[in-house]
Design a protein around this nucleic acid. Structure first.
Lengths: 180, 180
DNA sequence: CCTTGTTGTAATTGACTGATAACAAGCCTG
DNA sequence: CAGGCTTGTTATCAGTCAATTACAACAAGG
């Protein structure tokens, strides 16, 4: 089957990367098959591998991509109002782009792999540092902010937060406390 | 090879379950091979399957096991002093038994699977409820407590917290804020 | 002692999966 | 328009892995 349209390797790589983010968000590192990513991107599986070398490198690219986007969201939010509480309101944006937090979570889970662990630690550290730099928050405040983000992340993974949540009374009770 | 000692199915099942907790903590649901669990438990791989039916059911058993232990730790802590701040000091115990938080984290990650998701939601909800019941904390306080736990969990997965942490200045800065 | 249920293994299988190789078709450039 | 570079596919492999089957050893009770 000849491809419908020919793109440059960079353009196609971007499309595959977007597909990879969606797929990894849904199934994690080990659980996602390169075949599925290829299907989502509309290309053949071997081409996915050729574009990124290995599945691991593709996952690393996905991690970097979502972390870039997370930092971008925080920067935009801080540009409007550089207070930590204002930044907090922008967790909504992160929850809306559900893949961001989910890929990050799967990054944490896959940190047992040294290569992935190095990448995740570096990116998580730079997010922490960015938050402190943008808002001037103390370590305590920044930690509290990050803590709330992590709870949102795991609740998002359990489908208790974000679009179309599974209704659970206790989860709704927790969700309400985020609205401050 | 004939086994060294014969145990009842229940005893052997417990040993396999302990091995499974260790293995799943290290590599997650998809990343852990039943073969590795068998090796850790000192039995053959088919026997692991026969004892638990499927790898999924073994993972569910591991989730239930660590959640039972987490609730037990909280109950013991509350028996000494039923204040939330006192309970917080017992996160150290959770960090010491590193597998507890790690298996839970991998449970969150694997929540995309409906069966696992159901189990994880139920157990996480009952932990939240237990915390509220034991301490009489408000939803806000309980959420804050859980939030801190989730940050500890992911930092533990990144090997930034717990025994033998990878030294990172920013991570140490965060870790210090937990000591209150 | 024998026979029946239980604990356990060895052998195997069938499906899957990441990666490689070989090839094809399109596009630019001289 | 010829030649080479880029984009993309098909075919295939070598390894892995959960699960099944069949069998073996052992213990306990009659």
């Amino acid at each position: 089957m000849t491809p419908k349209v020919r793109l440059t390797a960079k353009e196609r790589g971007d499309e595959v990367l977007r597909a990879a983010v969606r797929a990894f968000a849904a199934s994690g590192y080990e659980g996602t098959k390169t075949d599925e990513i290829a299907r989502l991107a509309g290309v053949s599986q071997p081409y996915v591998i050729r574009l990124f070398g290995t599945k691991q490198q593709l996952f690393l690219a996905a991690i970097r991509s979502v972390c870039d986007r997370i930092e971008e969201i925080f920067r935009e939010a801080a540009a409007e109002s550089p207070e930590l509480s204002a930044l907090g309101r922008n967790y909504e944006r992160l929850l809306a782009e559900r893949e961001l937090l989910l890929v990050l979570l799967h990054g944490f889970s896959a940190s047992g792999d040294p290569v992935i662990g190095d990448c995740v630690r570096e990116r998580f550290g730079s997010i922490y540092t960015l938050i402190r730099d943008l808002t001037g928050a103390t370590p305590e405040q920044a930690r509290e902010f990050l803590s709330a983000g992590m709870l949102m992340t795991v609740m998002s993974a359990m489908q208790l937060l974000g679009p179309d949540p599974i209704p659970m009374p206790w989860a709704a009770e927790i969700a309400k406390t985020f609205d401050n």
